[in-house]
Each structure stands twice: as C-alpha cells, then as structure tokens.
Design a binder for these strands. Structure first.
Lengths: 335, 335
DNA sequence: CTGAAAGCGCTAACAG
DNA sequence: CTGTTAGCGCTTTCAG
C-alpha cells in the first residue's frame, strides 16, 4: 500500500537497520549510505509510519491536555506554556475537551490507558482523590490550575489563597470595608482557597465576615449578574465585590452598568485570572493574574522529568500571581 | 512489562484470537468463553494497547483539528460540532494550535503523514492551494471556516459574502448611508468575501464606496480601536461601522466609548461571528452569527464519509448565517 | 465456534 | 560501519 522503510532500504541498497539509523541519527552511518538513504527517501516520498515506531518503542511522545472547553481563553496561555516545554523535549501537546463531564474525562483518560498518549495533564478535573491516586500509580498524569485535596499527584497551581488575599487587601487599602464576594458552589478547591483568602484578608483588617456578602453560583458569567443584582438589593449594599473569576466579574459589571451604577465609583469590582476580556472590557477589569504560561511550562517540565528518569514526582507546586490594576476597582470616595 | 492480550488469553484458557474477538465483537464467541475472557480482563486489569491495534489496522480513529489558537472562543462551538459527529462514528477529535504559523502547521500535518492521526481539519490554514491540492491527493484533509481559492479540497464555510451583505443592508435599513468597514490585510478569503458583500450592499442601495471608509489591519481587537479612532478623525465621519469580526467590533466600541461617544446613537457598530464576548459586552454587539456547531458537524461528517467509503469529496459547502440584533447598532436618528 | 500463525512498520540487540 | 533477526501487541485470514 504505502512506501515503507523496506522500500527505502531496497531503493537505497542498504538494510532497513541502516535506514532506521539515518532516520533517527541513532548511530554513525557512512556518508555514502546516508546519502543513498536520503535520496531514496526523497524520490520515494517516504514518511516513516509512527504506528510502527510507537509500538516498538511503546511511546508516542504525545501528552494529552484535558481542558473543560475551548470557550474560555483562560487556558490559552497555559496550553502555550505546555506546548513550549513539550516541544523543547520532542513531545507534542494534543488537546481535548471534557465539558467538565466525568464520563467524558474518563473516556479521554482511556487514551493514556491504551497508550495512545504517554501522559495526561488534567486542567480542572472532575476526578476524586482516590481515583487520581489509583491512576497515578500506573500512569503519568498531572493536575494543573485546580488541586484535589488528598490527591498525591503532581499538581501545579497558582497560590489562590494569597491571590485572593491580595485582591481583597487592595480593596481594603482603597478604603472599602463592605466587600462582598462572588464564588462558586461545589467542591472546587481554587474557589475554596480564594474564599479563605478573602476571609483572612477581612479578618486581618478587623472586618467581620458577613454571610449575606458571600454569593455562590455557577461559573457562568451570567451568575455574576445575578449576584450583583442581589447585592444591590440589600439594605446595606457592599461598596466593592471580589469575584472568583473575571468571567463572573464581567457579569457583575455588566449588571451594575445596566442598573445605572458607575463602576469604580458607586461600586468597585475585582476579578481573578486576567483573561483577555478583562482588558478589553469597558471599564477594564481589575484582577489577579495567574502565571498561566509558567503554570503550563512547569507542569509539563515536571511530568517529562518524571517520565524521563522514571521517577514519578507528586510534588505540589504553587506559583505566584500578580495584581493587575484597571478601572473597575478604585478608592472609595469619602462622604 | 504490561499485561497484554496474551496474558489474558492464558488466564482465560483461550487463544489470543478469541480474546480479540470478544474485545471487538468481531465474531460470535461462545457464552462460556466470553465470560472467561471478561473475567480475565477484569482480574488482570487489562487495557488493550492501541499501538498494536493501530499498527495492525493502519488507522487510529483520531482526527486532528488544527486551530490558530485557543484564545478565541470562536472555535469552541465548531469543535463541539466536530466532536459530536466524530464520537457518533467512533472517532475522537484531538486539537492542536498552529499560532497561524505555516511552519507549525506543517509540523502538525506531519501527524497525518506519519499516521498518528487519520485525518486533519484545518481551521484557518496558512497553506496555499498547490500544497493543499498535493496533500489532498494522498491524505484526508479538509478546510473549515476559511476557504482557499483554487484548493480542490473539502471545504465548509459560512456564506461570508451574504452575511456581510445582510449586516450592511441592516445598517442601511436603519437609515445609515455613511457606513465604514474594518477589515484585515492579507489574503484571507473570508475577509475578502465580506468586503465584497459590504460593497455589494452599498452598490445595491445607491451608496458609493469610499476608499477612506475601508480600514485594513490585523485580527487583533486593538486594531478595531485604531480604525475607530481614524474614522472619528475624518471630516465626514461615518455613522456606522461594519467589522469583519466581533473582536474588531469590540475594539472599535471600546475606543468609541473612550472618546465619549454613545454607541447606537452617535455611532453604530456591527460585528461578525457572534463570539460569547459580544453578548457579554456593554452594550451588546450586533453581529452576524456563524453556524459554528453545524460547520463542525458537517466538515467531520463529510470527511468521515470520504474515509469510510474511500471516495474523497472535495465539495465546497456553504452554510447560512443569522443576524443577531443587539444594542451596538441602532436606527440613525434624524436630524 | 476456535486456534495457529502471519504480519502491520519499525527499532534495537547482536554479530560481524 | 552494516546486516540479520526478533519482536513490540494486535487483528485477521485460514483451517478445522
């Protein structure tokens, strides 16, 4: 059917081993033979069949990145970082989406079970700690962006707690005392960590935590609007809102504008992530930037290190954030 | 090293052929043997190695989707559509990003040359017609969203020309006569088609095309701002702007707001694509929606049809758009 | 309904 | 520096 290494060998007048050698630079081959082989490759239009190679070497040099969806630009830079470090090491990153669905995620993980890929990086997994620990024994997997408590698996995240703390501290420094938060329901640790950072910043500054200032909804930007509406209906309105994500912040800002409020004057809003929209929005959204590119680089580097030297790490690595000041959060006006 | 089909056969007291049969349901196997095999699979924790299977069958059941980057949510629904139709047919979609870089794109296409994947769908390719035609002879490839003139390759796009026409016609119906356009430089046919739709709508309504009302920049949202600034500096300002993409529309709107203009009153803006941001923005961006999910479904369906029946199509399929009315474009106020 | 055996394309000892 | 050969794990004739 197709032209194989055998055909090349025949055409070049050498053995398949020699062809393989020049293909992989795996041993010294005479200049003459090399030339013959390269000529044959060119004239025959030969492309090595990786299915054969992969089977033989029992590796594919592919890492699967499982993301919830491609709808959120948030993952973009993480993936770029992953790609950079993968490519430097002769690997490729292939991406697939789980829609945050456990069944889909398992179906995708099947690709590491059946050796279609060498490893998988899960960004925002639905798996529980037990499952992850099981898998980690047999396969190369890692978590990025979202840790799972009790999962003894390579994990790279931003310091969510400290990031939230800094965001809220910034609002406090702006003179805000009535600071609400928009978070998410469910067991996502990034959300919980950020809630804790929020609470700690309040406590450290003598501000009492108020249950009615904590809204928990979905990740959908629309729930930011819902939360903002709720807050603005309170007798004692907050003057600032810290959101677990920029998407929710956008929803909150949009609603506030709709209600005729001046963002940064009547109400300050701070997000988290620094997705592209935050810079594009009017007003620009003040936020906590995650070191996305570095998150991606790091997780792949560590993963490949483990594969290469066959010593699995289950390190938990925490990277630093950066506070990005824009127009959606401003000093509280004295009245 | 790992547990293979051989081990299962031994444990089940049958031949590897029988194991393979129950694995693939490829022939009738006695109830007893089936049970034995399934038990062995379970107790041994066996996972078939697809590297072996793939080599043997010379197929991977994977389709590669090559997108410029994951930063633009625009591709999200297309990919979902691709996945849906792939999964229905026992295939998986794996995604990779080209950064709109020709070299990277070729490197990725290598995955179809070396049989790592069965086919590739290129979304916004950098390849020229000759190259595409060459490849189409030997491999299964398709284009989506962006056609290439002269490429006799399966292509699925929206009707760019008609979409632009409808968008501009809508502005004209709103009473606008001074309608500018923000387009992109370079050879992208989607841009050219939309320019032509724009020009035709003008011509059909007795409006003369003015060179100074056509701005060509990059795809970056920031260039929408640049264009808007330019238009607002003209002596004879346009009252409406049609943008080749929502991203550019957002940039234009942002700048106009910055300049103190009222969107929808002082200036109307219409985009193209209907990416999520367009609904999130304040004001909402009026736009032309591409049938993304359908684009994705269709291209994979056609591609798989070609693979399955081994008759390659190089059809060019054009799907319909929908005009989405929001607040950024409104009737011109009479003065 | 089942087993034996060939072979997909490639790499890596091993022997020379 | 080079060729021979075994075999990666699997599917699929072919015979029974």
């Amino acid at each position: 059917m197709n032209v194989t290494i055998k055909d090349v060998a025949k055409a070049a007048g050498v053995s398949v081993a020699t062809v393989s050698r020049v293909l992989n630079n795996s041993a010294t081959v005479s200049v003459f033979a090399t030339e013959q082989v390269n000529n044959a490759i060119k004239t025959l239009g030969y492309n090595p069949n990786f299915l054969g190679r992969n089977l033989r070497k029992c590796e594919t040099n592919i890492i699967l990145a499982v993301i919830p969806s491609t709808e959120h630009a948030f993952y973009s830079d993480i993936l770029r970082g992953m790609q950079a470090s993968a490519n430097e090491n002769g690997y490729d990153i292939l991406i697939s989406t789980s829609n945050s669905n456990l069944v889909t995620e398992m179906r995708l993980l099947n690709m590491v079970f059946n050796r279609t890929v060498d490893a998988a990086v899960l960004l925002g997994t639905q798996l529980d700690a037990d499952t992850l620990n099981d898998l980690n024994g047999k396969y190369n997997i890692a978590l990025c962006c979202e840790r799972v408590i009790g999962a003894d698996v390579l994990t790279v995240t931003v310091d969510d707690n400290a990031g939230a703390y800094a965001a809220v501290k910034n609002l406090i420094d702006f003179g805000h005392r009535k600071i609400a938060m928009i978070s998410t329901e469910g067991k996502a640790n990034s959300s919980l960590d950020r809630e804790n950072g929020y609470k700690k910043a309040l406590a450290d500054n003598g501000i009492e935590f108020r249950e009615e200032y904590l809204f928990k909804g979905s990740y959908d930007y629309y729930d930011g609007s819902v939360a903002m509406e709720k807050y603005m209906s309170l007798n004692d309105r907050p003057t600032a809102v810290f959101c677990i994500s920029d998407l929710l912040a956008v929803g909150a800002v949009k609603k506030a504008i709709r209600m005729g409020l001046k963002i940064g004057e009547d109400i300050s809003v701070c997000g988290f992530d620094n997705i592209p929209v935050s810079g594009m929005y009017t007003p620009g959204i003040t936020t906590v930037e995650q070191p996305c590119y570095e998150l991606g680089r790091t997780v792949v580097e560590e993963l490949l290190y483990g594969i290469r030297y066959n010593k699995k790490t289950s390190k938990h690595i925490t990277l630093n954030f950066e506070l990005i000041s824009r127009d959606s959060a401003r000093p509280l006006k004295k009245q």
